[in-house]
Design a binder for these strands. Structure first.
Length: 112
DNA sequence: CGATTGACGTACG
DNA sequence: TCGTACGCCAATC
């Protein structure tokens, strides 16, 4: 059977591997997959991941600025911030506080 | 099948 | 520092 774009599957795998209390960026995932310039595809993967199983912690994936750009796609939109705070992450003005400290880079954690 | 859109990021002025 | 332009690739219109 032909398998679908491994790119999307890989995105889901990486997002699922994000530890609790940590966040990453679309660009970081794209770089890890070897598609640094295809950060948009990561976003598309999330869009497709919405509602699929296992649950994808997309709330831990934000843009490079630490801004919850995808919060509008959650149900309700405030759910994203809620989940992040539940993980111990402070969110203010749709932006992660101390984003750099919470940043989780797949290349450093998965390269092993 | 062509044009537009999109949960991004970088480059340029 | 801010705003605009472009690239990237898949899905949608």
């Amino acid at each position: 059977m032909p398998k679908k774009s491994d790119f999307f599957q890989d995105v889901y795998a990486v997002v699922r591997l994000i530890p609790k209390g940590r966040v990453t960026t679309y660009g970081a995932i794209g770089i890890y997959l070897g598609a640094a310039k295809s950060a948009r595809m990561v976003g598309w993967a999330m869009n497709n991941a919405h509602g699929l199983q296992p649950t994808i912690p997309a709330h831990r994936v934000v843009n490079r600025n630490g801004l919850l750009t995808g919060k509008a796609h959650f149900k309700p939109p405030s759910l994203m911030q809620h989940l992040l705070e539940k993980d111990g992450i402070t969110v203010e003005n749709n932006t992660i506080v101390n984003f750099k400290e919470h940043f989780w880079e797949p290349l450093e954690e998965l390269k092993l």
